[in-house]
């Protein structure tokens, strides 16, 4: 379970890691704890899976991946494992989830696909579909980004 110090650490870590030689020392000082305590707690979160990764995420448009599409598929239960494996192996796929279908919306499997162009996304999806023998999917290309942020956990209003 996360105690109050964990929540304070996670809330404080959500801004960018300072680009200085000893970034954790800077954050630890702000929190009023020792650098070793901070590093040990972070290592614990990573070991338990609360911390997925410490690193950078890029602005995909700026580095050439201008197109992305959310693709919704209808995958029968006996093909779910194969579909998940194919998506894990594909570098173009950044996210893959099974989700609840709804009346009039039979799709139960979603991926986020990135490509340099819209056509590349469409070709990648078609190739994945063919490889899996799956025909029923829709490409939901984004036409406008209204919001894109990282979640701020344990904000002041919650703790």
């Amino acid at each position: 379970m996360l105690d109050d110090l964990d929540k304070r650490i996670i809330a404080a870590m959500q801004d960018d890691l300072p680009l200085v030689p000893e970034p954790y020392k800077a954050v630890a000082e702000r929190l009023g704890i020792a650098e070793e305590v901070l590093l040990a707690r972070l290592a614990g979160y990573r070991a338990r899976g609360e911390l997925r990764r410490m690193g950078a995420v890029l602005r995909h448009r700026e580095v050439g991946y201008a197109a992305n599409a959310l693709c919704a598929w209808q995958v029968p239960a006996d093909k779910m494992a194969a579909a998940a494996a194919a998506m894990k192996a594909s570098a173009a796929v950044t996210h893959c989830y099974a989700r609840v279908p709804r009346p009039g919306w039979p799709y139960n499997f979603y991926i986020m696909l990135h490509g340099h162009t819209r056509e590349e996304c469409t070709r990648t999806a078609a190739a994945l579909a063919e490889g899996l023998g799956l025909g029923d999917f829709v490409m939901l290309f984004s036409t406008r980004e209204w919001k894109k942020t990282s979640m701020r956990y344990f904000g002041e209003d919650e703790v």
Binding site: I10, M13, G55, V57
Partner: peptide
Amino acid sequence: IRRIGPFF
């Protein structure tokens, strides 16, 4: 770079 830091 959009962000450098932890991803929970």
